[in-house]
Nucleic acid binder design. Structure first.
Lengths: 186, 186
DNA sequence: TGCATTTCTTGATTTGGGTCAAGATTCGTC
DNA sequence: GACGAATCTTGACCCAAATCAAGAAATGCA
């Protein structure tokens, strides 16, 4: 879900195969929603083409981009999928995108057929956990400038992918502040 | 690990049984370390008595309390345990505490013996993921005051358990600020 | 190409939390 | 109970980011 530490098909080939064999091919136009905030989203996908952003909307109407998924990565609100609760985020296509989609039931029966599959599911969850955890710890320790620099190091062409305004939202600062951070560094 | 959304023995009875059957009984005095930051910690425990805090130390020597574990809950740096990397946090006893301890190998062989056990492990990881994820989203949306009020709602007697100084660290504010927040609410 | 819209930058001002400092209160220990 | 240490509160001041505002640059589209 994150700029660099995403969950890629390459890391979970057996899972990727499942999506390739059985996934329903879905094409979304730019801006179209794959999942809506506050709804239950019991499906996920493997991104074949394009890109997705995860957006959280507060009660006051403020929106924050909290993550991304690109081609070759899995996309979906894994947590909402697991526990069946309404999703905290919406997921929308950033451009014309294509994915292979499976619903949670199919994933659960896949897990259930084999202890190795269960283990795979565990490793997937552990992998995601490690990433979210690291992001959380960054909240405790890093300044906006550090977050910006660390992000650039991880994904140097991030600026070709998203606007500064959106990047600011991801870094949890105002666009003006990001603009000033960038001037400071130059 | 958190004040309310911890992983309890009651939620994972089969796992709790494993700890009760095979766990090594360890008694720690107040302040003693169960796990050290920057080291690999490949064991975890079920807290029988007492309480533990998770502390992250920055390079500048600032310390933040990032979580807790109480009696009836599991304790350990699950992420460090899974991926074998050095831990981001230390875990220390807040008072004289007793726990039943297992190392990662035993847990892995437990998972490996049965598809049901693998599934249990998956659910555990998913459960943890959901919690850490919620904490992360809180970073994006909540003010210190909101974090304080939400914490009080979840764990009304938190103030009898930890000092305001420590609570401030958990809420990611200075003690003075927490003091002012409390005056504001009164 | 020209116009409208959005994004981006820059400056001025405000504000929330941090820092520093000084008491008050609580707690532990002898 | 008295003393010392730690915690807690309060005030004064500082600073980084938010807010407000205005103009420049880029983008989209007719």
């Amino acid at each position: 879900m994150d700029f660099n530490r995403y969950i890629t098909a390459a890391e979970f080939p057996a899972l990727a195969d499942l999506f390739r064999m059985e996934g329903r091919r879905i094409v979304l136009t730019s801006g179209a929603a794959f999942a809506r905030q506050a709804e239950r989203n019991r499906r996920c996908g493997l991104v074949v083409k394009g890109a997705f952003r995860y957006v959280h909307l507060t009660a006051e109407g403020e929106s924050s981009v909290v993550g991304y998924a690109f081609a070759g990565e899995f996309v979906g609100d894994y947590i909402s999928m697991c526990n069946g609760l309404p999703s905290w985020v919406g997921i929308e296509a950033m451009c014309e995108s294509e994915l292979l989609c499976l619903d949670n039931e199919r994933l659960e029966t896949f897990y259930a057929t084999d202890a190795d599959h269960e283990r795979l599911g565990r490793h997937l969850a552990e992998h995601l956990l490690a990433e979210v955890y690291e992001r959380l710890l960054q909240c405790y320790v890093s300044t906006p400038q550090e977050r910006y620099e660390s992000l650039l190091r991880r994904c140097p062409d991030v600026l070709r992918l998203v606007s500064l305004k959106e990047l600011a939202s991801y870094l949890r600062v105002r666009p003006e502040t990001l603009s000033r951070i960038r001037r400071r560094i130059r």
